[in-house]
Amino acid sequence: MTEVMKTIDISHLGGSKVGYRFGKPYDPSLPTLIMNNSFTTSVELFRPQFADSKLMKVANLLAIEPYGHGKTYPEYRQFTYWDSAIANLQVLDALGIAEAFALGTSQGGWIVAQTAMLAPDRIKGIIPLGTSMDSESQLSRKLGCWNGIEFCTPAIDALAEPVADDWTVPDEFVVGVLDAGLGDTVTAEDRAFWLDEYRRNYKGDAGRERLRISSINLRDRDSLHARVGSVTCPVLWIHGTADAVYSVANAQDGIRRFSQSADAQLKIVDGGQHFLSASDPQHVNPATVEFINRWR
């Protein structure tokens, strides 16, 4: 049975509470797999991984919520994706875990790459899913990716002013994220679940501010193209052909930049959506099991 959601204290950003969940009680005989969720979602994105007995047998599944997401709150009010990568490592420290694999969906993909850059001696391999290693650049759009500036800017502008305590995230924001992430695989039940989850996580003025900074981070992130050559661990990038946000051509361009990786592979999932861990676990989970068994 999946462990309950918890928070843990770390020192980063003036002191932070970080939301995390294990798939089952920690087993020191198994390797650990960090899992970072996609834009404005939570550890609930990884329900299909927590439900997979084969995956649970090969690793301790440790979902960690980035800054601005779920139950993760810093004392300081500004943060970037690099801060979430640092938080990954400090959570491992706090839990007494020396090393780990790391899987990340969409924004989680570049967070796990950043984590591997920061601590190459601790990250044994990374699995980026439906992601990009670029900023919202001209090259990205030339390769067939979405225009993240056009997607994020209206929300950033709309969230600029303080709101009352009874404010909750607009439904249209949630629906827009789900449509981009899950496409035609999102069910009415999924939509209702995520609407409730978002309303819990983004309410009142603090919720508005977290949502705005998370949107700014997505739109204004730095490119990792010049940095990923420092990643030395194995990389398995999994990408779907139906990804509405980042293209297969962009993934092909991105994977070749891991020039110093022990082994950098791109796996294409026919019909796979953007939030691959949620939409296509039947492809992601077995590939993850194989990757961990190969490189543990």
Results as ranks from 00 to 15, higher is better:
Ser38Arg: 04
Pro120Gly: 15
Ser230Leu: 09
Asn201Tyr: 07
Arg21Asp: 04
Tyr202Thr: 02
Pro128Trp: 06
Arg221Asp: 11
Ser223Ala: 15
His283Val: 08
Lys6Ser: 14
Asp166Ile: 15
Ala251Cys: 06
Ala98Leu: 14
Thr185Asn: 02
Pro170Thr: 07
Ile268Val: 15
Lys203Asp: 13
Asp83Ser: 11
Glu75Gln: 14
Gln273Ile: 04
Asp222Gly: 13
Leu55Lys: 04
Leu266Phe: 15
Leu143Asn: 06
Ala119Gly: 08
His274Gln: 08
Ala188Leu: 15
Ser230Ile: 13
Leu139Ala: 09
Cys145Pro: 09
Leu30Pro: 01
Met133Phe: 09
Pro25Glu: 12
Cys145Phe: 02
Ala59Gly: 09
Thr41Ile: 11
Lys124Cys: 01
Gly14Ala: 14
Gly144Leu: 02
Asp184Glu: 13
Met133Pro: 02
Asp93Thr: 09
Arg47Phe: 13
Arg191Ile: 05
Ser277Met: 11
His225Tyr: 15
Val91Asn: 00
Ser137Met: 05
Met56Ile: 11
His239Val: 12
Ser16Asp: 06
Leu55Pro: 02
Val186Thr: 07
Gln252Thr: 10
Gln78Pro: 00
Arg227Thr: 10
Gln114Leu: 13
Gly125Lys: 02
Glu209Trp: 11
Gln90Asn: 05
Gln252Cys: 09
Val112His: 01
Arg122Ser: 10
Val174Cys: 07
Trp194Thr: 00
Ala119Lys: 12
Ala180Asp: 03
Gly70Ser: 13
Ser261His: 09
Lys142Tyr: 14
Arg257Ser: 10
Ser214Cys: 10
Ile292Met: 06
Ala160Tyr: 01
Phe193Thr: 08
Asn37Phe: 02
Ala59Asp: 03
Phe258Glu: 01
Leu182Ser: 01
Ser214Asn: 05
Trp295Phe: 13
Ile97Met: 03
Gln252Val: 06
Ile255Leu: 05
Ser29Tyr: 03
Trp146Glu: 07
Ala119His: 07
Glu150Trp: 09
Val231Met: 08
Gly70Tyr: 02
Leu89Gln: 04
Thr115Ser: 09
